[in-house]
């Protein structure tokens, strides 16, 4: 590929207690493309995004964003870097004491001195894009899960960042909204040259827009490549995951002792 790598993850290792979440993960995320990250629930996709954003610190290995080692930056340098990132949290993570409008306006107010009418314009544009311009006045507690996530998406792109991380953007969306969000992510990526990282279980949707995809499981990257390559892969693992079959090498269970043994005690 001719594109530049913006996010370079090298030999990343991360543990929670005794549980190894990542064991020697190496991954390049290309600039201006949509990269899909897939994997079974609980493998550490959210954790990976937090490691990239410098919210968690790896036990070893490095994450480089724009040629800067994220975990070696000072707090203020990290904040400068983060102002170029947008993150859609899996839970939405809206500020509960502000209404929808103020939530989306929040990063704009904190980081710019734009006049009020301009802020209003930007916020309405962003909310229109996620179909919630009519919900301006609602408080986060009055939104459904899917709506909160869309407001959070509007907030993540409020400042037109260079990179956006979407953690499960399609969860809780109806088929129509999902289609709109899929094309919104694609459109943002194309028009703004946004580097996008999409974590999702919705294999069909995410692969339809991704330029590049990887599957992680049990602390390792088990497959990576273009969507076509993944779909054509003859690895049992990839086939099982992409088709959602119950039997195969991908574990459905959190690591545990033998089931029969456990029940017969």
């Amino acid at each position: 590929m001719t594109t530049e790598t913006v996010i370079r993850i090298e030999n990343l290792r991360f543990q929670r207690g005794d549980r190894v979440i990542f064991d020697d993960v190496t991954l390049d995320i290309p600039e201006g493309k949509i990269t899909a990250i897939m994997g079974p629930s609980g493998t550490g996709k959210t954790t990976l995004l937090k490691l990239i954003a410098g919210q968690l610190v790896p036990d070893s290995g490095s994450v480089t964003v724009y040629d800067k080692n994220v975990h070696k930056l000072s707090r203020s340098q990290l904040y400068v870097l983060r102002s170029r990132m947008g993150m859609l949290f899996q839970s939405g993570a809206l500020l509960t004491d502000l209404n929808v409008f103020e939530n989306v306006a929040f990063p704009i107010r904190e980081h710019t001195d734009l006049p009020e009418d301009l802020i209003e314009l930007i916020v309405k544009l962003k909310l229109q894009a996620v179909g919630l311009r009519g919900a301006l006045e609602l408080m986060p507690s009055e939104l459904s899960g899917g709506m909160s996530r869309r407001v959070a998406l509007a907030r993540a792109i409020a400042l037109d960042p260079d990179m956006v991380f979407y953690d499960e953007p399609f969860v809780g969306q109806d088929p129509i909204t999902m289609g709109i969000l899929v094309s919104l992510i694609k459109k943002l990526n194309q028009s703004l040259k946004l580097t996008s990282v999409v974590v999702s279980h919705d294999v069909k949707e995410v692969l339809s827009i991704a330029d590049f995809a990887c599957v992680i499981s049990e602390g390792r990257i088990v497959a990576q490549g273009t969507p076509e390559e993944l779909l054509a892969s003859d690895s049992e693992y990839v086939k099982q995951f992409l088709r959602g079959l119950p039997d195969g090498p991908v574990p459905f269970h959190y690591p545990a002792t033998d089931y029969i043994e456990d029940l017969s005690c």
Binding site: K50, A53, Q55, Y79, V80, R82, S83, M85, G86, M87, F89, S91, A93, L94, L95, T96, F106, P107, E110, H111, A152, R155
Partner: peptide
């Protein structure tokens, strides 16, 4: 509810 994480991510 990850609001503090969200603030950190918004460079606040």
């Amino acid at each position: 509810t990850e609001q503090t994480s969200a603030l950190e991510m918004m460079a606040v």
